[in-house]
Amino acid sequence: MSTVFHICRREIIAFFSSLAGYVLVILFLGISGFFTWLYGSDVFFVGQANLNSFFNTAFWTLFFFIPAITMRSLAEEKRSGTLEWLITHPVTEARVVLGKWLACWVLVAVSLLLTLPYYLTIAWLGPVDHGAAVGGYLGLLMISAIYIGIGIFASSLTVNQIVAYLIALFTGFVFHTLFDLISGTLTGTTSTLLAYAGTTFHFETMARGVISLDNMVYGLSVTAFSLCLATVNLKRRLWL
């Protein structure tokens, strides 16, 4: 496991060694802060001391921001040839993928940690449902895990970061919106299954403070599946 940790560490340092890393985190905080406090159905407009407006904003901002974090992870390594450098160390492809995923997830978790002042301020404004707040944060961490998995898979497909971003965004869109959208037009088991396949259903449940096993199973399985696909993609060179 130590190699996963070393790859993760190197990735986080690389992220913050460029200005782009800071810009991304600041933009994320700025945009989610703006919609939580200043614009649209913000906290003051709703008039309730809860984090719903923040969670709903973060649910969308993460959807757009995560592909920007993940797009370079494998695409850049492939483009510059460092993937060969990395893989010719005693490291398996799965560990490389896992290390990259973990780094992105830690970055998102740190960004979310930086939004804690929002939570504290709202808790100061009025009585907050702490269970729902914890559930909401866990929900955001879970959908982030999924989108990062998808993003890493997208990044393993190409050497072009922009293409990786677009593939991740489109695939993310299927989970984020499309399943939910189609489910709304149908009824019965198909509708339920489609809703279950999307992230919205699980996130909304969790943001209400209800965390059930199926949310976890869903999050874990979609993430694991994406990471497996990314690993297979890196190993494909051995089968050609």
Binding site: S2, T3, H6, I7, R10, I13, A14, S17, S18, S80, G81, T82, E84, W85, L86, T88, H89, P90, V91
Partner: peptide, 27 residues
Amino acid sequence: GYLPEHNPLYPDMGVIDFLKFSGSLHR
């Protein structure tokens, strides 16, 4: 010990950090 063609390196890393990273991957 393998030096790939075109000698790929991580430009954003320091020389020592790069060597340490390589060594840590060798456990």
